[in-house]
C-alpha cells in the first residue's frame, strides 16, 4: 500500500509554526536581556523567579488550587456516584444539565458570583435575615476558592461519572454476595476501579485552577496575586517580557513534573477522559 502521508503536512507545518516556534521564542526571551548595549545571554530572569516574593506567589497558587481540587473531589465524587446510579435516559438528561453551565461564558458566571458575595449582596442579606453576622467573603481567599470550585466542578464530576457508569455492576454484586459491607465494597472495589476517572478529574481541575488569572482578579479583587496574574501583568502592565517568559517556563516545568507524577498512577487511561 502506497503511503499517503502528505495530507498530514499542512497540520505539521501549522504545528511547527504556531506551537514549536513560539516555545522557542518564549525560551529565547527568558534567557536574554535586551538593552541599549545589545542582546546578551542572562539568567537574571530566572533568578528573579526564585526570589521569595515570587516563590510565595507560586506556593499560594498551588495551595489554593490544591484546596479547590480537594473540595471539587469531595463534592464531585458523591455527585458522580449518584448520577451513575440513575437509569439511562434520566442519566443522559442530568449529564446534559451538568454540561450546560460550562457553555455559558465563564466570565459572566464569575461576575454573577460578585452579585451574590459582595457586601450587602444576596448571600449576606440572607445570612443577616437569619440573624447571623455577615460573611464578607468577597475579595478574600474564600471567594477565590469558591470561584475555582464553581468553575471547575463539572471537570471533576464528568470523568468520574464516565468511569463509574462503565464499571461492571456484577463485580459490585459479587462483593456484596461475598458479605462485604457497603463501606468495604466502596473502599476495596468501587473507588479503586474509579481511580482513572479521579486522576483525570484532579488533573482537569488542578491545571486550570493553578493558572487562572480571571477568577483571582474578579473575586480576589486584584490584591491577591496568583501565578496567572503575575504572568499577565508582565505582558500587559510592566511589559517585562523576559521575566514573564521565565515565569511561564517555570510554570510549564512544574506542570510537566506534576503530570509525570499523575501519569505514574494512571497506568492505562481507560475511558477516564472527557471524550
Amino acid at each position: 500500500m502506497k503511503k499517503r502521508n502528505w495530507i498530514a503536512y499542512p497540520h505539521i507545518v501549522w504545528m511547527a509554526i504556531f506551537v514549536l516556534v513560539p516555545v522557542f521564542i518564549v525560551l529565547y526571551y527568558s534567557i536574554v536581556s535586551i538593552s541599549d548595549n545589545g542582546i546578551q545571554l542572562t539568567l537574571k530572569h530566572f533568578a528573579r523567579v526564585f526570589e521569595p516574593l515570587y516563590l510565595n506567589v507560586f506556593i499560594r497558587s498551588i495551595e489554593l488550587a490544591l484546596i479547590s481540587t480537594a473540595i471539587c473531589l469531595l463534592l464531585g465524587y458523591p455527585a458522580a456516584m449518584i448520577l451513575a446510579s440513575k437509569n439511562l435516559s434520566k442519566r443522559n438528561m442530568l449529564i446534559v444539565l451538568v454540561i450546560i453551565p460550562m457553555w455559558m461564558n465563564f466570565l459572566a458566571r464569575t461576575y454573577a458570583w460578585m452579585t451574590l458575595l459582595e457586601r450587602n449582596g444576596l448571600i449576606d442579606t440572607i445570612v443577616k435575615a437569619i440573624g447571623l453576622p455577615p460573611l464578607n467573603i468577597m475579595y478574600t481567599d474564600y471567594a477565590v476558592v469558591l470561584g475555582m470550585v464553581y468553575n471547575f466542578l463539572p471537570f471533576m464530576i464528568l470523568p468520574i461519572y464516565s468511569v463509574l457508569s462503565k464499571t461492571n455492576k456484577s463485580v459490585i454484586e459479587a462483593a456484596e454476595d461475598l458479605g462485604a459491607t457497603p463501606m468495604v465494597t466502596f473502599k476495596r472495589i468501587v473507588f479503586p476501579l474509579s481511580l482513572p476517572g479521579v486522576m483525570s478529574g484532579i488533573t482537569m481541575v488542578f491545571l486550570p485552577a493553578v493558572t487562572t488569572f480571571v477568577i483571582s482578579e474578579l473575586l480576589g479583587g486584584g490584591q491577591y496575586t496568583l501565578i496567572g496574574n503575575l504572568i499577565q501583568q508582565q505582558f500587559t502592565l510592566t511589559m517585562d517580557w523576559g521575566f514573564g517568559s521565565a515565569l511561564s517556563i517555570f510554570l510549564m516545568i512544574l506542570i510537566l513534573i506534576s503530570m509525570g507524577i499523575m501519569s505514574k498512577y494512571e497506568k492505562e487511561n481507560e475511558g477516564g477522559g472527557l471524550w
Partner: peptide
C-alpha cells in the same frame, strides 16, 4: 499547556 502560556507564546510569535 495552560491557556495563559499558549496565549503569551502566540502573542510573542
Amino acid at each position: 499547556s495552560p491557556d495563559i502560556v499558549t496565549g503569551i507564546s502566540l502573542m510573542l510569535l
